Simulated scan of single mutants.
Amino acid sequence: MRYSSQIKPISYLKANAAEVLEKINVEREPLVITQNGEARAVIQDVATFEQTQETLALLKLLALGHRDVEAGRFASAETVAKRLRRRRVAT
């Protein structure tokens, strides 16, 4: 994606807020808002934001799991299955 075509000054956002919101919801591409020539904010549709947050959460879980493996905190699938079977029988 080329962000250069998705950059608008804050004055454009103020004058065209409804149109901007419609566009980002249809195109599902973020819009960079500038103030005094500097990038200050990124606007994106809610569905894309939620998807990004879910992706970040999964990546965090993977990173934590990788750290556990590196630290030796893991068990084989067979061991875990046995533990689960024992818990199931106990309840």
Score class of each variant (00 low, 15 high):
44 Q>N: 06
44 Q>S: 03
44 Q>A: 03
44 Q>P: 00
44 Q>K: 06
45 D>I: 02
45 D>W: 00
45 D>L: 01
45 D>Y: 00
46 V>T: 12
46 V>L: 15
46 V>H: 10
46 V>D: 12
46 V>R: 13
47 A>Q: 13
47 A>Y: 08
47 A>G: 11
47 A>I: 14
47 A>K: 12
48 T>W: 00
48 T>K: 01
48 T>P: 01
48 T>G: 02
49 F>W: 12
49 F>D: 06
49 F>Q: 10
50 E>S: 10
50 E>L: 15
50 E>V: 15
50 E>P: 04
51 Q>W: 03
51 Q>Y: 04
51 Q>A: 15
51 Q>G: 07
52 T>D: 01
52 T>N: 01
52 T>S: 04
53 Q>F: 08
53 Q>D: 04
53 Q>A: 14
53 Q>V: 14
53 Q>S: 11
53 Q>G: 04
53 Q>R: 11
54 E>W: 03
55 T>I: 09
55 T>Q: 02
55 T>Y: 01
56 L>R: 09
56 L>Q: 06
57 A>M: 09
57 A>R: 07
57 A>W: 01
57 A>K: 08
58 L>A: 15
58 L>K: 13
59 L>P: 04
60 K>M: 10
60 K>C: 10
60 K>D: 11
60 K>N: 11
60 K>H: 08
60 K>Q: 10
61 L>C: 05
61 L>S: 04
61 L>F: 02
61 L>T: 02
62 L>H: 08
62 L>Y: 09
62 L>I: 14
62 L>D: 06
63 A>R: 05
63 A>Y: 01
63 A>N: 03
63 A>H: 02
63 A>M: 03
63 A>Q: 02
63 A>G: 02
63 A>P: 01
64 L>K: 10
64 L>R: 08
64 L>Q: 12
64 L>T: 10
65 G>I: 09
65 G>L: 12
66 H>Y: 07
66 H>E: 08
66 H>A: 15
66 H>K: 11
67 R>D: 15
67 R>T: 13
68 D>K: 01
68 D>F: 01
68 D>I: 04
68 D>V: 03
68 D>C: 03
69 V>Q: 03
70 E>R: 05
70 E>G: 06
70 E>V: 13
70 E>Q: 07
70 E>S: 08
71 A>I: 09
71 A>V: 08
71 A>R: 08
71 A>D: 07
71 A>Y: 02
71 A>K: 09
71 A>W: 01
72 G>E: 04
72 G>V: 13
72 G>H: 05
73 R>W: 05
73 R>E: 07
73 R>V: 14
73 R>S: 13
73 R>L: 15
74 F>H: 03
74 F>W: 06
74 F>A: 07
74 F>S: 09
75 A>H: 05
75 A>T: 06
75 A>N: 05
75 A>C: 12
76 S>F: 11
76 S>A: 14
76 S>W: 05
76 S>E: 08
76 S>T: 14
76 S>L: 15
77 A>I: 12
77 A>G: 00
77 A>L: 06
77 A>V: 10
77 A>Y: 00
78 E>V: 12
78 E>P: 02
78 E>Q: 09
79 T>C: 06
79 T>R: 06
79 T>L: 11
80 V>I: 10
80 V>R: 00
80 V>Y: 00
80 V>E: 00
81 A>H: 04
81 A>T: 09
81 A>R: 10
81 A>N: 05
81 A>P: 02
81 A>Y: 05
81 A>Q: 10
82 K>F: 11
82 K>N: 11
83 R>G: 08
83 R>E: 07
83 R>C: 11
